[in-house]
Amino acid sequence: MNKFVLKLYITGDTPRTERAIANLRRVCDHELRGQYELVIIDVLENPQMAEDERIMVTPTLIREMPPPRRRIIGDLTDTAKVLLGLNFDPHVDHLDARND
């Protein structure tokens, strides 16, 4: 199964952060059918991780797995654009998830 591993970089507990997390969870639950692992990284608590990853703004979402690695930024409001940005192919990825 191609389980999605997503890393969301955020800055503290702000309305922007809450909005991005809520948007992302909605997309994941609806489109990835729970077949995902979401890691939320607060750059205020883990500045070195942000530096290593060269994060310049938050929210930044990185698709770690499966390849190809993709990076998108923004409030993640637009589901279609999030999926496009993550290079999520509903035919391929959903079929994989169902066949697993």
Binding site: T11, P47, A50, T58, I73, D78, K81
Partner: peptide, 23 residues
């Protein structure tokens, strides 16, 4: 790599992550 922007409207509020840690 900066990241591809995904926002709902014309604008979005973003936090800048600066090396000096300033918010």
């Amino acid at each position: 790599i900066f990241g591809y922007p995904v926002v709902g409207g014309e604008t979005a509020e973003m936090d800048i992550v600066r090396p000096d840690g300033e918010e």
